[in-house]
């Protein structure tokens, strides 16, 4: 179904874990849109809920985790409540995924060719030879030299960077419209991170796929993303065009994050600019989750949870921008 609206709409999405001591909310009522072909960067410290957001969209949450509320619409249709079999058909075909560690993403016992052909044949109505041909083309596209030879190699015969190229080929082999890349370069050698990102960006543009690029590397975001969502404690603190969020951050947390961009390529895992660390799921404070660490905190920050408000071309969830208030 062709239509001009957003490719992906996430509305008030929550992810909860059912524990013996009651449900824990790991992703708390987040909303965002993604246009076709757009690259949305998602940043935040470890444990902010970035991976879970991606996992919820691909429908791969595992017990005890589950979607606790909200809606996910893809190409206009709800996908958060699809039966498992329909969701499976969507995965790989319309929504691709790339994980953090290329060393463990591939089955060590099968050749990369077999894994490519298997995925292609699952989604496209191609014969064995045609599928193999397509696999060869994909390997060439992601920049693997001598694909005719490499296609019959096993994953352990590839280096980390080459394996992540194979993973990208696998994610794109049925031309999905959305690719969720969860820290695709974090596990790689710093010297090849930029190459892999360039391959990812180029291929997604050529295949017309939008990307949700999860990373905690602000340098990557500044270079790659069209828009950026900043997550903190399972909520979106700020979302907006990359230039605006990186150069003129509005949320005090984003400011802190940007202050900690040291050199491109170095992770901003530890925030030197902001005291303390992100709260655990069991003791997220009331009101704004960031207020105990916030340099601009006011009395009402502990009482009222700020809702995202339009600021410039983006949205910021902070009382500083609440304008008239509630």
């Amino acid at each position: 179904m062709k239509q001009s609206g957003p490719l992906l709409e996430v509305r008030d999405l929550s992810v909860v874990f059912d524990t013996r001591r009651g449900p824990l909310t790991a992703v708390d009522r987040i909303s965002f849109d993604l246009s076709p072909g757009e690259i949305l960067g998602v940043v935040g410290e470890s444990g902010a809920g970035k991976s879970l957001t991606g996992t919820a969209i691909t429908g791969l949450l595992e017990r005890p985790g589950r979607i606790g509320g909200g809606e996910i619409r893809f190409e206009g249709n709800r996908i958060d409540n699809l039966p498992p079999e329909q969701m499976r058909r969507l995965r790989g075909r319309r929504i691709g995924a790339i994980f953090q560690d290329p060393l463990t993403s591939l089955n060590p016992l099968f050749t990369v060719g077999r894994q490519l052909v298997e995925t292609i044949q699952t989604h496209l109505d191609l014969g064995r030879e045609q599928a193999r041909q397509r696999a060869l083309e994909l390997l060439a596209e992601v920049g693997i030299p001598a694909p005719e030879k490499r296609i019959d190699h096993y994953p352990h015969q590839f280096s980390g960077g080459m394996r992540q190229r194979v993973v990208i080929a696998l994610a794109l082999c049925a031309n999905p419209k959305l690719v969720i890349a969860d820290e695709p370069t974090t596990a790689l050698d710093v010297s090849i991170q930029a190459q892999i990102l360039a391959v990812l960006k180029k291929l997604c543009r050529e295949h017309g796929a939008a990307v949700i690029l999860v990373t905690h590397d602000m340098g990557v975001i500044a270079e790659t993303a069209d828009r950026v969502a900043v997550m903190y404690s399972g909520r979106i603190a700020e979302i907006g065009p990359a230039a605006q969020v990186v150069k003129a951050p509005r949320h005090p947390y984003t400011e802190g994050l940007m202050g900690s961009i040291p050199v491109i390529g170095t992770g901003a895992d530890r925030l030197t600019q902001i005291e303390g660390s992100m709260p655990r799921l069991t003791d997220i404070p009331a009101g704004c989750a960031f207020h105990p660490r916030c340099p601009c905190a006011r009395a009402d920050c502990a009482a009222v949870r700020p809702e995202p408000r339009p600021v410039g071309d983006g949205k910021v969830a902070c009382v500083l921008y609440d304008g008239g208030g509630i």
Binding site: T58, T119, T122
Partner: peptide, 26 residues
């Protein structure tokens, strides 16, 4: 529980392929 099984699911392979092709073989 391994990553390559999660990735196999993320590629949309059928349960049958994931369980008997990838998991059992390993």
């Amino acid at each position: 529980r391994t990553d390559f099984i999660r990735f196999a699911r993320a590629r949309g392979l059928t349960d049958r392929a994931v369980h008997f092709g990838h998991a059992l073989r390993n």
